[in-house]
């Protein structure tokens, strides 16, 4: 191959790409198989399910019932809007919280590698415990006779009938908390590679700390911001654990994930659940592609 690259004759030039494409195809094979098996097949089956019709006896048959979509979307519009609203708020809070943290670990703490590793471990440490357990723990902490509510009531910042669990605030909190590592790690990886000489050049060119942050630091860490927000927003929008009534949610904070879950597992209305899943996926796809296009980091996808 190396020799062929130097040889100027046409046969060598022809042979190289063909051989390389076979190698590439071979290497791609596991990935392609995976994609077909675990993405294409379930997707097709989901689409088929979403269009099924329900017989009088309650059984489902193949069909082309588009009203499955319109009906379920109009029935659950509130939950759909709420899901994206919660996910958006959680993403923004997670970003605001994670950026300074990632900046500290990736830039400020560069001089102390030990501190850097220690803080990184702290960010990852929650993964050592199942997130179900951690969310349950929060449920206890935030429960009506838990320390937080008691303290707030003691300070008269909350009425005697007030709750945290079951309210939207608890769900958003849970989403934020659970997805912060997914925001923090991509931010950390870009900030860790940030070349400080650009910041120096910027401040040499009359940019104050804030202007440097806006004009240089943020654009240079944009890939991390984009992947962090995607890694947070996408799973948060479809999350069904935090908003579940067994965890932090209540009747007024149900998200689309919970609706899909109960349609699939409790009401066994498979077409509605499948239709909602596809709507969710489609909306996320549209949001993500617009977002990525707008932030100018198409190379990321």
């Amino acid at each position: 191959m190396a020799i062929a690259a130097f040889a100027g004759n046409a046969t060598a030039v022809d042979a190289t790409p063909r051989r390389r494409s076979w190698v590439a195809l071979f290497l791609l094979l596991p990935g392609l198989l995976y994609l077909v098996l675990f993405f294409i097949v379930p997707l097709v089956s989901l689409i088929i399910t979403s269009l099924e019709s329900q017989g009088l006896d309650g059984s489902f048959a193949y069909g082309f019932v588009v009203s499955n979509y319109t009906d379920s979307v109009s029935t659950f519009a509130t939950q759909i809007w709420r899901s994206f609203g919660f996910a958006l708020i959680a993403t923004v809070i997670a970003l605001l919280f994670s950026y300074p943290l990632a900046y500290f670990i990736g830039v400020t703490a560069r001089r102390w590698p030990l501190l850097q590793s220690f803080m990184l471990i702290l960010v990852i440490a929650p993964f050592f415990i199942s997130f179900l357990l951690r969310t349950l723990a929060w449920k206890t902490i935030l429960s009506d006779n838990g320390p937080v509510v008691t303290a707030l009531q003691g300070l008269s910042l909350m009425g005697p009938q007030g709750h945290i669990t079951g309210e939207p605030i608890a769900v958003v909190f849970g989403l934020t908390y659970n997805f912060i590592p997914f925001m923090c790690l991509p931010l950390y990886t870009t900030l860790e590679r940030l070349d400080l000489r650009y910041l120096e050049a910027s401040s040499d060119l009359y940019a104050s700390g804030w202007a440097t942050f806006r004009k240089v630091t943020i654009p240079l860490s944009l890939p991390g911001i984009v992947s962090g927000t995607l890694l947070t927003f996408i799973p948060a929008a479809g999350d069904y654990v935090n908003a579940s009534q067994d965890f932090l949610g209540g009747t007024s904070s149900t998200m689309i994930g919970n609706v899909i879950q109960s349609n699939f597992l409790v009401q066994q209305n498979y077409p509605a659940a499948a239709a909602l899943s596809i709507v969710l996926m489609f909306v996320i796809l549209v949001i993500v592609s617009v977002y990525v296009r707008r932030s100018g980091t198409e190379d990321l996808l």
């Binding site: 070349d195 000489r197 650009y198 120096e200 050049a201 910027s202 401040s203 040499d204 060119l205 009359y206 940019a207 104050s208 700390g209 004009k215 240089v216 654009p219 240079l220 944009l222």
Partner: peptide, 30 residues
């Protein structure tokens, strides 16, 4: 004083041109 408060500009040995900006935006930055 901070660098941005000094009436000084530097041509850096390593250039340090902002990679996310065009040449024109780099030059117009200051």
């Amino acid at each position: 004083t901070k660098p941005f408060q000094r009436p000084v500009n530097t041509v850096f040995q390593s250039y340090a041109l902002f990679p996310h900006m065009t040449v024109l935006d780099n030059v117009a930055f200051g």
